[in-house]
Amino acid sequence: MKVRYTFFIIALVAMLALAACATPTAAPQPTAAPAQATAAPAGKPFRIAVVMPSAANDLAFSQSMIDALGELQKEMGKDKLEFVYSENMFNVTDAATAIRDYATKGYDLILAHGSQYGASVQDIAPDFPNTAFAWGTAVDTFKEKGVNNVFAYTVASDQGGYVEGVIGAKLSKSKVLGALGPIPAGDGQLTIKGFEAGAQATDPNVKVQTTFTNSFSDVALMSQAAQTQIASGADVLTGTSQSVVGAVSVAKDKGALWFGNQSDQASLAPEIVVASQVYDWTVALKDMMAKINGGTRGGEVFIMTFANKGLVMVYNPAYKLPDDVKALADKTVAGLADGSIQTGIK
């Protein structure tokens, strides 16, 4: 018995030694940039790394960030902006490792794109004072705790939800609207509250029914939730998280209308998606990059709203929205932007 495990341990040590030997030969590979990254000097691209909990093509939260970075890269050119990402980092231990590794590799800005990553960022950021971190969706930069290189970003998704509620109340024939969410938390819950407020403000007789499936990934349950909503009278639905893809398909089959959130979801069912509230992170990213190039690496909170165009209502061109409703929607967006309309969600 003893020999067995001694041998096992020897083998382990040997492997470690091998790995250690492999390291120096690997050093000159292109990805391993110098660890010290001061504010990107002219000529060098700005390098961003994103760590996110779901898939980059989730048509929801993670994709909204990847789309924004792609947009920004198109705008600035590939030689000016580089970005890499780690998706499916739903496990926070893995995410922390990824964040630290990207910091070690000298990225200029590391986006911890998930509210569950806060403790990790707080832990890692002080070890890399020359790297900027950003954490979202969140409003805490840990500044009071002496950390100066963390930005926070979030989204006033109640505003988008509000507009959807306004349009939904106008379009609904049954005067019953349905809202679907994963868990009553985060930006999803904010959207739903806004949706309720918007619908109520437009027509007090409208009823908003809410269902939470308690899972970000359970497509089956979410589609049954949509089914249930429709069976109980709802003819306009909205929902958040990547698990709504099945719900959209149910809505299409049953002829209910759909409002997308986070990313543009019109591609899922062009016939019935009225509009999507899209998170356009480019606004926050541009600000952050400007700050970083100016020497500030954290301490500020960016909130995406209609006012700063970080929130955008994207209307589905394939759906014919009546002109008066579209006008009302535009007015609502403008009102939310200039503050004359408040969602009342706090």
């Binding site: 739903f90 496990n91 926070v92 231990t93 893995d94 998930g114 403790a119 994963p182 308690n214 970000f216």
Partner: peptide, 18 residues
Amino acid sequence: AVNHRLFTDGSATGFTGS
């Protein structure tokens, strides 16, 4: 030792890593 707080994303794996 690792998280110093408890959080959830509605799944077990978010915390346990399977």
